[in-house]
């Protein structure tokens, strides 16, 4: 029961997926930057939002509800996809990573990670408020 409340909710699973993707993305970006001048290295990237969108379109992930009275859509059993690390499809045949692009990815990813962890922390803070005896 407690497990269900703390970790079972869809939005928490989504937040976890987002944070996992962010953690993987920083690692992959750091690697791309580290190997910017390594011959033969193929830059990598993390796919998550895209997989999530596809799963949602296929009705596997229920729509988020911002209000308790909202109806749920899709089956509740669908699993939230795991972030996936893939080799970046080669564009314009250039080898190695473009460092400016990677730096932007780094910033963007950090802001997103900050937002998600803030949301997760808020969620736990609410739970703590409820649990705490008045």
């Amino acid at each position: 029961m407690i497990r269900q409340i703390l970790f079972g909710s869809r939005s928490l699973a989504l937040l976890k997926g987002g944070l996992d993707a962010g953690a993987a993305r920083i690692r992959v970006t750091a690697e791309n930057i580290a190997h910017a001048e390594t011959p033969g290295y193929t830059p990598r990237e993390v796919r998550f939002e895209e997989l999530l969108g596809r799963a949602r379109a296929a009705g596997e992930v229920p729509l988020a509800r911002s209000h308790g009275a909202h109806l749920t859509a899709g089956s509740a059993s669908g699993e939230i996809p795991r972030p996936r690390i893939v080799a970046r499809a080669g564009r314009d045949g250039a080898e190695g990573a473009d460092i400016e692009r990677e730096m932007v990815a780094l910033q963007k990813n950090e802001i997103q990670f900050r937002a998600l962890s803030q949301m997760l922390a808020d969620r736990y803070r609410q739970l703590r408020e409820v649990i705490r005896p008045s």
């Binding site: 990677e102 950090e110 990670f113 962890s117």
Partner: peptide, 20 residues
């Protein structure tokens, strides 16, 4: 650039530790 990546990783790990 690599120092920046290192620092970003560190800040994000600190954020993770601060969630609870």
């Amino acid at each position: 650039a690599n120092v920046a990546a290192l620092q970003a990783e560190k800040r994000m790990q600190e954020l993770s530790l601060g969630i609870g």
